[in-house]
Computed example of a mutant assay.
Amino acid sequence: MTKSPRITAFTLAATTALTAAGMAMAEGELNLYSSRHYDTDERLYSDFTDATGITINRIEGKADELIARMQAEGANSPADILLTVDTSRLERAKNAGVLQSIDSAVLEEKIPANLQDSDNQWFGFSQRARIIFYDKADVPNPPMDYVSLADPAYKGMVCHRSSSNVYSQTLLAAVIENHGVEAATAWAQGVADNFAREPEGGDTDQLRGIVSGQCDISIANTYYFARALRKDVSGLSAEIDSIGWIFPAQDAEGAHMNLSGGGVAANAPNRENAIAFLEYLASDQAQQYFSAGNDEFPAVEGAALSESVAKLGAFKADDVDLSVVAKNVPEAQKIFNQVGWK
């Protein structure tokens, strides 16, 4: 838990300090529910307060817990903004009825159409490409696209996260949208057949698996790798030169992108402040900080990249509508269960 003169962060357990009446009465406040767990986001919040004079009160927790909390609070919810990671969670919040549609010329202009909800209930503000990493010494011919990960030539070589992880679900949901259910099912079965080990751990663990020799190929979000380029990450940074990377499907749909984004809460007591905050997140200043502070790709075209992110090189991103991809997540989970991807 961190505190500053302008920002107060609370855990989900700290309910006594947050009553709906207490948070909604004061002017010049913003009540933020966030599942982004990055210390570097403090700069985003403090800069917004410096620019606007609006104090940010923050509750942090897991996305599903925050969504459930907002549902339980109903019309009395103090939440103004929900921030979370991954398109599937943003769509889950929408389906749970805890977000509202807004009109913002700023967001319509700056956020690409495929990175925002069709009903303007959520918007993406930063991105992570989900790409292929490989052992440069052991894999002379790495897979150049997602489909090739299912090639029997890579049997016993692939590390991946579990099927319950939202990054896994959204990637398969994108494969469904780009290639169809039948092809996506065959792909999931082929990748599972190529596993070097049972799915376990987070993205950094998949990269460490390459360094340790447990596997030769993995998929991870770019910001985990870029972070290890920028600073020491145990079990990874010291051997990071041994890892190569591929932005997949550059001759086809392009690299799959994960979103971090947010929307205005359905019962926001400080609605105008909430819209102002989302518009601030689309500003050049905030967009540059998503990259410099957390090694992410900005959502707004032309925003500057940090040195570590720029090292990854230019690439073609999949421009599929992510609000449509999110609707495929239930089908993706069904396929995972069908093929035995744990």
Rank of each mutant, 00 (worst) to 15 (best):
D119C: 05
E73A: 04
A68H: 04
M70C: 05
E91L: 10
D86F: 08
Q100F: 03
L66E: 05
A79M: 03
A75N: 07
E91S: 12
Q71V: 15
S77F: 14
T87C: 06
Q100D: 10
G74S: 07
P78G: 04
S118R: 09
S101N: 07
E60N: 15
K62E: 15
G97I: 05
N114R: 07
L83Y: 11
A68G: 12
G97A: 12
A93Y: 09
T84P: 07
P78Y: 06
A79L: 06
K110T: 02
I67M: 02
A63C: 13
M70H: 08
L99F: 04
I81F: 11
K94G: 14
N114E: 12
D119L: 13
S77N: 05
G61T: 11
Q116S: 09
K110E: 00
T87L: 07
E108P: 00
L90I: 03
Q100G: 02
V106D: 04
E60P: 00
E60M: 08
I59D: 03
Q121R: 13
G74T: 06
L83M: 13
V106K: 00
L99N: 09
E108R: 10
S77W: 13
N120S: 11
A63V: 14
A72W: 06
A96G: 12
A72E: 13
D119G: 08
S88T: 12
T87N: 09
A105N: 05
L107V: 13
Q71F: 03
A72G: 05
P112S: 08
T87Q: 14
A79F: 01
L99G: 07
L90S: 06
L83P: 05
K94S: 14
Q100N: 06
I81Y: 14
S88C: 13
S101V: 02
V106C: 00
I102V: 15
E109T: 13
W122E: 08
E60S: 14
T87E: 10
R92T: 13
A93F: 06
N76M: 09
A68E: 10
T87M: 01
Q100C: 08
D80A: 08
A63R: 03
G97S: 09
I102P: 01
S77G: 01
D117A: 10
I81A: 14
V98W: 07
K62V: 09
R69A: 14
A96T: 03
G97H: 04
S118G: 13
R89G: 01
G61S: 05
N76L: 11
I81C: 10
R92E: 10
D64H: 10
L107E: 03
L115H: 06
G61I: 04
G74M: 07
Q71W: 03
I59V: 15
S104H: 07
I81M: 14
P112Q: 04
L83Q: 14
N114P: 00
V85Q: 01
G74K: 01
G97C: 10
Q121K: 14
L90Y: 06
N114I: 07
L107H: 02
I102Q: 06
L82V: 11
I67S: 00
D103R: 15
R92I: 02
K110D: 00
A96I: 08
R69M: 11
L99A: 06
V98Q: 09
N76Q: 12
S118A: 12
G74E: 01
A113T: 10
I111W: 02
L90D: 00
D80V: 09
V98R: 11
Q116Y: 07
A105L: 02
D119I: 02
A93S: 10
I81S: 13
E108T: 08
W122A: 11
L99P: 02
V85E: 06
